[in-house]
Design a protein around this nucleic acid. Structure first.
Length: 547
RNA sequence: GCCCCUGUAGCUCAAUUGGAUAGAGCAGCGGACUUCUAAUCCGCAGGUUAGAGGUUCGAGUCCUCUCGGGGGUACCA
């Protein structure tokens, strides 16, 4: 099944061609797509296009006359019940009930993949997300990135990509030493030694918890151990906790990419050599600088400090080259706003290394602000992702994280999220599914074991809207992928649920007085269930059968 | 100082990338369950889209300036 608006667009273009061959319209270069929007007034139909307005100047014709010429050819199309032209020069189409019914029948035939697209069949994509340092528990910000990345991965899969979910495991550099030292000090404190952390050490309670575990398991046998031993223990422990947190959110990574390996296999040195040989790296003040200004960047940056340690930009460049070397057609970095500045530098580095950096896309998200009574910050501690999941549940976390566009700040209202009531949009959507299940259970007793998929004559306005909304899932998936904006899916799920609830209120599905109509409505409800389940599946939210 | 994001109803946000009379939810008010789940539905009210200019048939959306909020601006990641 193809995208709904694309089908309409093709019909309009065909009508333009017909109008041209009849001399109703002059010849002009046809666009490959007619842009359609959902008009605000019911009398303007299901979709409308401003195409006649846009072409008016070029063709030296009035918008109305262009629209009327297209209308003359489009009106006989059985896909449409009505084609109208309105004031400044809009072309409006109303889908025919027969066409809608037949399309919904096709949903039943195709099942849950009905809205999937084959556009990127055979292509491979990599989505890198979360990529937290193994130095502490995941934050709610990581949670946002995680949910965005995972849902985007689902979406990319639904348009044909083979997707690799990847977590860049940042376990090299000085921060790991600090982690080891911090744990060592906590451990010695647990044994009663009078020591304290410095300002730069990791202050969180999680290292205290870990150190008491160490005392329980090893007693004082680790007293003489080097910080490196403690780093190893802390890293393993924290990483496994991070992944257990992610798995609570239904997120499973395919690959944990180890930063350390970039040093071990010489990739990082290779980047230095190539940049040097191209005259893009130079020594100054004992450090090695990347000459970004030559490549159009805003300013040169240090890639190897005078201490001999690389800055994060260097392994980042190396890592992104490695991604492209693995042959991905699309690489998406899901990053928090704090990383935004370095992204262009990495792209320039990748380009300088001779790779096609246009395959790498950025999906940046802003931070999460936690609002609510019981989640107020305790002294010295911040709210972890674990706390949040425990407080409101995984479904709610996933849904709320995807309610806003990723580039806007997200106010996470914990009081609202915790509320199991009509105020909570997650339950609104899930309740629609539970209602559907309930209807379908009862349907068995009225129309026993009926396997035919016929849908006819669903003419009520709420039925029309519901059918159209269901068929728009393909548009939503397409747009979410095109714009790397998974939040459209959340809006879609709410809209579809809303259309269903309105239909439920207006139309009795199970009506013993009218078996034929009941059969069609039951089939419609089955199709809506398929669509709603699919949307929730892509969002990673469960669909309870009763509530 | 400079760069990026952002400012829309009392609150939280949409608005299909420049289209028609700016839409939802919550909060407020009024209706609808002896009838498929009332975690629902229907209706009312709520706006100078921060402000001022500009671009054009047409601006919440684009350009300039001013004012608020956030982030960055490291030889941290």
């Amino acid at each position: 099944m193809s995208i709904l608006t694309k089908q309409i667009s093709e019909e309009i273009i065909n009508s333009i061609i017909l109008a041209q061959s009849d001399g109703l319209l002059p010849d002009f270069d046809l666009p490959d797509h007619i842009h359609l929007s959902n008009p605000k007034q019911i009398e303007w139909g299901d979709y409308s296009s401003a195409f006649p307005l846009q072409m008016s100047k070029q063709l030296s014709l009035s918008p109305i006359s262009i629209a009327e010429s297209i209308q003359k050819k489009l009106i006989s199309n059985t896909m449409f019940e009505n084609v109208t032209v309105s004031k400044p020069g809009f072309l409006n189409v109303t889908l025919s009930v027969d066409w809608l019914c037949a399309s919904v029948e096709a949903v039943l035939e195709k099942g849950s993949s009905f809205a999937d697209l084959q556009e990127f069949e055979g292509k491979e994509a990599q989505v890198e997300f979360v990529s937290a340092n193994p130095t502490g528990p995941l934050t709610v910000g990581h949670g946002r990135g995680g949910v965005i990345g995972d849902t985007l991965s689902n979406l990319l899969t639904s348009v044909g990509y083979k997707v690799t979910r990847e977590y860049y495991y940042n376990n090299a550099g000085r921060q790991m030493q600090i982690l080891g030292e911090s744990l060592r000090i906590r451990y010695l404190q647990s044994l009663g030694r009078d020591l304290s952390l410095s300002e730069h050490h990791y202050q969180g309670d999680y290292l205290v918890d870990l150190s008491t575990q160490l005392v329980d398991n090893y007693g004082d046998s680790l007293v003489e151990s080097h910080w490196k031993e403690f780093t190893k223990i802390a890293e393993e422990n924290i990483a496994s906790q991070q992944h257990s947190t992610l798995s609570d959110l239904n997120i499973v990574m395919d690959i944990l990419y180890n930063e350390q390996s970039l040093y071990e296999d010489g990739s990082v040195d290779n980047v230095i050599e190539i940049l040097k040989s191209k005259g893009l790296a130079y020594e100054k003040d004992g450090a090695l600088w990347f000459a970004l200004t030559i490549l159009g960047g805003s300013e040169d940056r240090v890639i190897v400090k005078s201490s001999g340690d690389p800055t994060y930009r260097l392994p980042d460049i190396s890592y992104h080259c490695n991604k492209l070397e693995r042959g991905f057609d699309l690489v998406v970095d899901v990053l928090g706003a704090d990383h935004k500045d370095s992204f262009p530098d990495v792209l320039l580095g990748v380009q300088a290394m001779g790779y096609d950096s246009t395959k790498i896309k950025l999906l940046m998200h802003q931070f999460v602000n936690i609002k609510g009574q019981r989640m107020s910050k305790r002294s010295g501690n911040y709210i972890t992702l674990d706390n949040l999941i425990e407080e409101v549940g995984a479904d709610v976390v996933r849904f709320f994280m995807l309610m806003r566009t990723s580039e806007s700040h997200l106010d996470f209202d914990v009081d609202l999220a915790r509320e199991q009531s009509e105020k909570n949009p997650v339950y609104y959507v899930q309740y629609a599914h539970a209602r559907i299940c309930s209807i379908l259970d009862r349907a068995e007793s009225i129309v026993a074991n009926d396997s035919d998929k016929v849908i006819i004559n669903l003419t009520h306005e709420s039925e029309r809207v519901l059918m159209r909304k269901l068929l728009e899932l393909s548009d939503t998936i397409d747009r979410s992928v095109r714009e790397l904006s998974p939040h459209y899916l959340t809006n879609y799920a709410r809209d579809l649920a809303s259309s269903f609830h309105a239909f439920y209120g207006a139309c009795k599905v199970l009506d013993v007085e009218n078996i034929q109509l009941s059969k069609s409505r039951i089939n419609l409800v089955k199709a809506v269930q398929i669509g709603l389940l699919r949307a929730l599946e892509l969002l990673g939210v469960t669909a309870p059968e009763s509530m």
